[in-house]
């Protein structure tokens, strides 16, 4: 595994180049181009504000912001589930013809989605400031850590699902449903405190719960995430990443034959 990691590091230029190609290629032919990166989250924000402030009036103060700070990180994660699952298949022309450490492909996919989330976070910050959130300095210092935890968690899961998908294509459809269920099982639209006490342990086992709660602590409440939340999230992230690397390492040898 150490040798694999070292080799992946040697291919860092390829990773960046795939990320670059993904980000640039995405909007290249469109008129508004790169602006779409900001328009999509802003449109989402507008719709949720209208629905939850005007029609389904929520009890939670500044519900649009409450939702928005959690939704952007979730979008990144969900993108990795529904899009990352087929990233190896999408790159089969490369995988079947050229040698490179196969981990490069999911890493590049997750990194591309992550960079996209970082751009969206600019919008999130603007909205937070506009809404008068008073950030805590320590909280803001924790934000990169929370993002890093979410990144390794998403990467671990993407490694597993993208490798399995090569052998079992139904996974793409299954994950379409699963990601919807997962979203409602994660406190994104509601507060973790309204979850019944007996279900709470299950919710805490959901790695995204801790991540979302941490984001909200920092960006909505202007506070500092609880140490318990952070360490639990970090532990789960590391476990998923290790499992992901091992599973991927086992399955990658027969990729070229299975596609």
């Amino acid at each position: 595994m150490i040798a694999t990691l070292k080799e992946i590091f040697e291919y860092k230029t390829m990773i960046w180049s795939l990320v670059h190609r993904d980000l640039r290629g995405r909007y290249k032919a469109s008129v508004l181009g790169f602006l779409w990166t900001f328009i999509v989250p802003l449109a989402q924000l507008l719709v949720y504000t209208l629905v939850f402030s005007v029609i389904l009036r929520s009890q939670i103060e500044k519900y649009y912001l409450y939702l928005f700070v959690a939704l952007i990180p979730w979008n990144f994660f969900s993108n990795c589930l529904t899009g990352g699952v087929s990233c190896i298949i999408q790159q089969q022309s490369l995988v079947k013809k050229i040698y490179f450490p196969r981990e490069v492909v999911p890493i590049a996919y997750v990194t591309g989605a992550f960079v996209n989330m970082l751009y969206c976070e600019i919008v999130v910050f603007a909205v937070c400031i506009f809404s008068g959130v008073h950030f805590s300095v320590l909280g803001l210092l924790c934000l990169p850590l929370v993002m890093a935890i979410e990144y390794i968690l998403a990467l671990g899961i993407t490694l597993i699902i993208s490798a399995v998908d090569v052998y079992f294509r139904d996974l793409e459809h299954i994950l379409g449903i699963l990601s919807m269920v997962w979203m409602f099982m994660t406190p994104i639209m509601y507060d973790i405190n309204i979850v019944p006490q007996r279900l709470l342990p299950i919710f805490r086992l959901n790695p995204m719960t801790n991540v979302v709660v941490a984001y909200r602590d920092i960006l909505y409440s202007g506070g500092v995430p609880a140490l318990g939340t952070l360490s639990l999230a970090a532990a789960m992230g590391v476990v998923f990443l290790l499992v992901g690397l091992v599973v991927f390492g086992k399955l990658k040898r027969r990729f070229a034959e299975e596609m």
Binding site: E10, Y11, K12
Partner: peptide, 10 residues
């Protein structure tokens, strides 16, 4: 750049 990176060049 993309193509050479795929061949493993930095």
């Amino acid at each position: 750049y993309t193509n050479a990176a795929i061949f493993g060049l930095t």
